[in-house]
Design a protein around this nucleic acid. Sequence first.
RNA 1: CCGGAGAUGGUGGAGUGGUCAAUCACACCAGACUGUAAAUCUGGCGGCUUAGCCUACGCAAGUUCGAAUCUUGCUCUCCGGA
Length: 317
Amino acid sequence: MQKLLVILGPTATGKTDLALKVAKSLNGEIIACDSRQVYKDLDIGTGKMPSKNLTVEKQKGFWIVDDVKIWLYDIADSKIRYTVSEYINNANYVLNQITSSGKLPIIVGGTGLYLKGLLEGFSNLGIPENPVLREELENLPLEDLQQKLKNLSEEAFAKLNYADSKNKRRLTRSIELNVMYPYINKNQKIEVKSKKFKILKVGLTTFRQELNKLIDLRLDSRLNQGLIDEAQRLHQQGLSLKRMRDLGLEYRYLADYLEGKINIELFKEQLKNKIHQYAKRQMTWFKRDKDIKWFDILDKNYSRKVEKYIRDWYNLS
RNA sequence: CCGGAGAUGGUGGAGUGGUCAAUCACACCAGACUGUAAAUCUGGCGGCUUAGCCUACGCAAGUUCGAAUCUUGCUCUCCGGA
């Protein structure tokens, strides 16, 4: 059976570094699984630009970093929202390419939803967003959205968990789905990668406090790499502040900074906190997946351990 | 040294006699999440033997049935004047 390696974990744990090493030794190619690295020109803030002095060659649809192909960088326009559905299509395409060339595909990323969608498939992918409906629902209060969904389907509302039943965005999507259900073919096939591939999931993490320290250091190094210049350039090229805020984390606070709402000290302080929180959310998501084999990146023998673990899996059957 | 303002929970900052363990925001902790996912949302957040009790709004002493809220003294901080 074809093998598929997945390297995942919260931000700032060195997933790509590990992937590059493994790709070299096992003749692999990397598929990024990151909801923000897909956007063209968001290089420093999304961590596409390696911090070490590695060679980088940008090509259409992929980068070559240190002689290793990394797919799914720069495939979207940062001004336009890209979503899971597109990711799954794009990633499937690339996955087939790599597989048919006989190489080892290595999925690297921290976007849990994208990864899950790719590996397990999603049943609702056939139903795209409905801009007209969304605009109509956009400014309704929570209670109205809840009522609308109940009217459409009492069952659908009941299926939402407590947190989601108060989440406008989820309610909107659920309404959207239920409006469309009568008109779609429910027998669409869901491709499930986990059945086609022999998958190894490797998780990289460490203790919260240590992780936070790494995040802080990384932010400082991104600032040195020219993070602010990058944002300024993007803004000049027409990326609105509003859109930057939607992109989250560095770009959200960069927008505040460019607008003069916060100074550099506040920028760093607030952003660091937000990235810490983000890392925590990533862990919350990944913790549920019991197939992940976790490694502590601060363990003295970390490198040796993961690399051996991966090699053993690769060489076995 | 004189005049003025103020000291509230990890932080900012409400509250000016009872319904205050104290609005709210941030931070923090935990969680959810199948088309915005770096997004969005939920719960918790003084302590405990947790339908109750204890300790708390700078410190101390008072007034009152009752004080974070009123009075007096002390300590400290900030602003203005010497």
